[in-house]
Design a protein around this nucleic acid. Structure first.
Lengths: 230, 230
DNA sequence: TAAGAAGTATGATCTAGATCATTTTTTCGC
DNA sequence: GCGAAAAAATGATCTAGATCATACTTCTTA
């Protein structure tokens, strides 16, 4: 029986996730404003935060849980762009572009997620230059990440990409085992589910990972780094 | 004989490219500051603006010409992420992230490009909120573009990607024919040069494009849109 | 706790596209 | 304008990985 996360109200002041987030340096006053205007909800597994094409009303702040950011191709196949975890703020890109969401976001597991309205968030960004600089920095880093994502997609084999993805996910899941369905993992790596399953089996046989039913334990980081290449 | 662009000094005030750029709304004072601090140079074809891993000293503002933004894979193969044209400001991502360039930039043809130092640029961003918002918007849009780039890479065939790329480049080269080497085009589409050449031949046979030696004229936009899919 | 559904696994087959080799065309420095 | 070198084109071959079919396992929930 998994620990029941269910709903619990977390105040911004006490939010443990905040220290890892863009809001880490937020001062008393700003924090109070957000705290009194935010709403906090419990999400079950695989619930949408927003869908592709809809208009953003605010940003989501992950207190606890995991969220996949993805885009759906013509035949409905998802490409997962990012897996967000506690402390991350999701959906602020569309806040600035003024355009509808170009991606969708769903919870990957039970999660506690707060919501801050567009106006509250934009006010904050406008008045708090530390936050603003943090956001510029964050956007820039993501842009760099995506450039290398594109390069890997174009030039690396599925085997190499799987190794790189497992390392990345191992970081995101930190002390836990990686907990994604084979299909989600395939959609992150950018391959067919069957291919992913076969390669994962190879990785097991070669001692890089161990599976606990659907969860994946990384055994040999060094080996995977080797395999993933530059 | 191509028109000789060679060096010409352009003032920010008279810069025709500015109206399409992030600097479009810049006011007299800010403009004067930049004008007196910028430097303006003529670049020959295939000269680097900056290389992967080096530290940024400022941003580049394309007055006239084309610049490829790319990243090099293990075996040296380039993945072109973006082709920048007049009015675009190149290299401002790394300005905010505080990290070395994660990509490189080279001219694709003779170009006139101005340089604005890091401190001048950051000052401007800090004091000019219109510019700042423009930059946030621009970063966000690029992030969305790259998400769809990733999806296309993962899910579309080379044929579909070539169609999409030609449409994109046709826009960038606006009134001119697309002018990229087959190798650069292949590195943009994310395929082998031979494969690109073969597919381009198919496109010629099917009447979508016409080639003028190395230059490519798009004949049937609608057809390419059809082919490129969503 | 049983049955259905969803997820995982494996096998067989097929092809888009990479790779290597060679020829032809274009470009560019002298 | 000429010769070398780079770029473009074409042909032959090979394989990573997609797709389709089916079976097995693990979750759900009645």
């Amino acid at each position: 029986m998994p620990p029941n996360k269910s709903h619990k109200h977390v105040t911004c002041q006490n939010c443990l996730a905040r220290k890892d987030s863009l809001f880490c340096s937020m001062t008393g006053d700003d924090l109070d404003t957000i705290e009194s205007n935010k709403s906090c909800s419990y999400f079950k597994k695989d619930q949408p935060l927003f869908i592709e094409g809809s208009l953003p009303r605010g940003v989501f702040c992950i207190n606890d849980g995991k969220v996949k950011i993805y885009s759906r191709g013509e035949e409905g196949k998802e490409q997962i762009i990012h897996v967000a975890t506690s402390g991350e703020i999701v959906g602020f890109r569309a806040m600035f572009s003024g355009e509808p969401y170009s991606v969708a976001a769903n919870t990957l597991e039970e999660s506690n997620i707060c919501f801050i309205s567009k106006s509250d968030f934009l006010n904050l960004v406008d008045t708090n230059s530390t936050l603003r600089n943090g956001i510029l920095k964050e956007l820039s880093k993501e842009l760099a990440d995506r450039a290398s994502f594109i390069k890997n997609m174009a030039q690396k084999s599925v085997r190499e990409r799987l190794a790189a993805s497992l390392l990345l996910l191992d970081d995101i899941y930190s002390e836990d085992y990686i907990n994604l369905s084979r299909e989600d993992l395939a959609n992150f790596v950018g391959t067919a589910t069957e291919t992913l399953i076969r390669l994962l089996k190879d990785f097991k046989d070669e001692g890089f990972v161990k599976t606990h039913v659907r969860k994946i334990e990384v055994l040999d980081k060094e080996g995977l780094i080797q395999l993933a290449g530059s």
